[in-house]
């Protein structure tokens, strides 16, 4: 793992021992008990599967459309024309006031849309068979990690 971290951490200053920094990071990771395998939510929804998808392409297309439209609910104040400048300013101020309150509701609606879509996309993703290419890559990474740890063990 030391070599892995040395390759990951880039310190170009020759006055700093990069390998030593990597060693201390590794030591502290263990001491603090940080679990690197936590799965965090992602902002972008995973919606498309090119091959081997369980559902017909139309469903992914609609999901994509819904994802793009889910936040587009705010309203913008349009330019206000009037022959009298004072009246135009007054009308614009009124429009802005209305837009302010409407957009508060719109933001709430966008959050609800987002939450529903995340649930839906999550369910679809769970039901999909695992992507074979990704599966193979994960397997390869796991094997390489195991091999590296074995080699490090021998060195010690």
């Amino acid at each position: 793992m030391n070599d892995e971290l040395t390759a990951l951490i880039q310190i170009d200053d020759e006055g700093i021992d990069g390998a030593e920094v990597a060693r201390r990071v590794k030591e502290n990771l263990a001491a603090h008990g940080l679990d690197e395998d936590v799965e965090f939510p992602q902002f972008d929804l995973v919606l498309r599967r090119e091959e081997g998808a369980l559902f017909p392409p139309a469903l992914y297309h609609e999901l994509q459309r819904a994802a793009e439209a889910r936040g587009a609910v705010r309203v913008a104040v349009q330019p206000v024309d009037s022959l009298l400048p004072l009246l135009a300013r007054l009308k614009r101020a009124l429009h802005e006031l209305v837009a302010f309150y409407v957009n508060q509701l719109a933001d709430q609606q966008a959050r609800v849309n987002d939450a529903f879509l995340r649930v839906l996309a999550g369910v679809v993703q769970r039901m999909e068979p695992p992507d074979p290419e990704l599966q193979a890559l994960r397997q390869e990474v796991a094997e390489l990690r195991a091999r590296l740890e074995q080699l490090e063990g021998k060195e010690r």
């Binding site: 971290l5 390759a7 990951l8 951490i9 880039q10 310190i11 990071v25 990771l29 940080l34 679990d35 690197e36």
Partner: peptide, 9 residues
């Protein structure tokens, strides 16, 4: 710099 995103690192 880090070449890979490992948040714990």
């Amino acid at each position: 710099l880090v070449r890979e995103k490992r948040s714990a690192v």
